[in-house]
Structure formats: structure tokens, C-alpha cells
Amino acid sequence: MGTWGTGSFENDDAADFMIDVLDSGDLSLIREVLDNVLTSTEYVEAPDAALAIVAAEIAAAALGRATLAAQQEDGLADWLARIRPTIDDDLRQQAVNALRRILAENSELRELWEDTEDFQNWKATVTDLEQQLHP
């Protein structure tokens, strides 16, 4: 995975996923990537985690709690205005739970970040995003 920063949208997987989301007309991709993380039996793969973080960013933005990164993401505000997605409590909780799995043991993305100087920054980004999703 090409990564150029600790932010949610600062990797190749996220960039590719955003293209797909902006071409979609509903939340099905968001639900799918969150489900992939939540149903992984033991180990959360890094690409699945990267997509789930973006899905959580989109959910937070749809709830009116967009992070600065989401506010700066090209096309997201227009997509939200066009689609007007409704984030029910179940989807919001799925996003929270997915982020918790990504931050926990048995997460490849966490392990990759632990091997860098930027681990604390990455962890803070994901933790802050999780806080945006709490009621």
C-alpha cells in the first residue's frame, strides 16, 4: 500500500475506494467494507482496515461530524449533498466497532504503523475519528 501520511485518506487504498464511493449512489460500499472488518475471524488485513477507516470518515461526515480530513476530501461534500445518506444507529455502531478492531491486536494496519515513528499520530487520527462517531 502506498502511503503518504497518517491521515485516513492518505493511502492508495483509500484513494481508490473514494473513487468507487463517489461513483456510487448509496451506502452499500460503506456497509460492505465495515462488514469485512467486523466479520474477519481473527486478523484484520491492512487493505480492509484502510477502507473501513474511510467508510467511518464518510459515516461521520454524513452525521454532520466531518473531520478536517473529510472536509478537505475532494468530492465528498458534493456526494453527501447529492446522496443525502442516512446513517442509522446500527451503521454508526458498526463504524465504531470496526475502528476498535483496527486499533486492537490482530490488526495488520496497526502492526504496520507500530513499526514507524508515526504510530502515535496514526493512532490519534483513528481514535479521534472514533470519537466523532459517538452520539
Results as ranks from 00 to 15, higher is better:
E32T: 15
R92T: 04
D115F: 06
A61L: 04
A66M: 02
W79A: 09
E108T: 13
A69S: 04
W79K: 13
E45M: 10
A50R: 13
W122G: 00
A14K: 06
D20T: 04
L112D: 12
S40D: 09
P135G: 12
R84S: 07
Q132R: 10
F119N: 05
R84D: 05
L129P: 02
A81T: 14
T39G: 02
T39Y: 10
Q131R: 07
A98F: 02
D13I: 06
A50Q: 07
N97M: 12
V33P: 01
M1R: 14
D12K: 14
G2A: 15
M1T: 14
A49P: 04
F119M: 10
G75N: 07
L38W: 05
H134D: 08
A55F: 07
N106A: 01
V96C: 05
R82M: 12
I30N: 01
L129D: 04
E32N: 09
L22K: 02
D13W: 09
I19R: 04
T6P: 07
D90G: 12
G75Y: 03
F9L: 09
A124K: 13
E130P: 04
T67F: 00
A104M: 01
P85A: 01
Q131W: 11
E130Y: 00
W79V: 11
R110T: 13
W4V: 12
E130W: 03
N36M: 13
W4C: 11
L27N: 05
L63E: 13
D12A: 15
Q72G: 08
I53W: 05
D23K: 06
G25S: 05
N121Q: 08
Y43G: 00
L38G: 05
R84G: 00
V21C: 01
D23I: 02
L109F: 10
T125Y: 04
L27V: 13
P135K: 02
D88K: 09
N36Y: 14
Q120A: 12
L22E: 02
L76M: 12
Q71K: 05
D90R: 15
D90P: 00
D128Q: 04
V44Y: 10
A61W: 11
A59Y: 00
Q131K: 10
D74T: 11
V37W: 02
R110Y: 11
N36W: 12
T86V: 06
D48R: 14
A50P: 07
A46E: 06
L29C: 11
R82K: 14
A46V: 01
Q71S: 12
I30W: 03
N121A: 13
D78V: 01
A15D: 13
K123Y: 15
I30Q: 07
R31Y: 03
L27Y: 03
P47F: 08
Q131F: 08
D12L: 15
T39C: 07
A69Y: 02
R65D: 03
D16G: 07
L68G: 07
D78S: 09
A104R: 02
G25Q: 08
T6I: 09
V44C: 07
D88R: 03
L68D: 09
P85V: 01
E45V: 11
E45L: 14
A66T: 00
S107F: 08
L103Y: 10
D78L: 08
I53K: 09
E57C: 03
W79C: 12
A77W: 07
S40L: 00
I53N: 13
L27S: 05
G7C: 03
A95W: 11
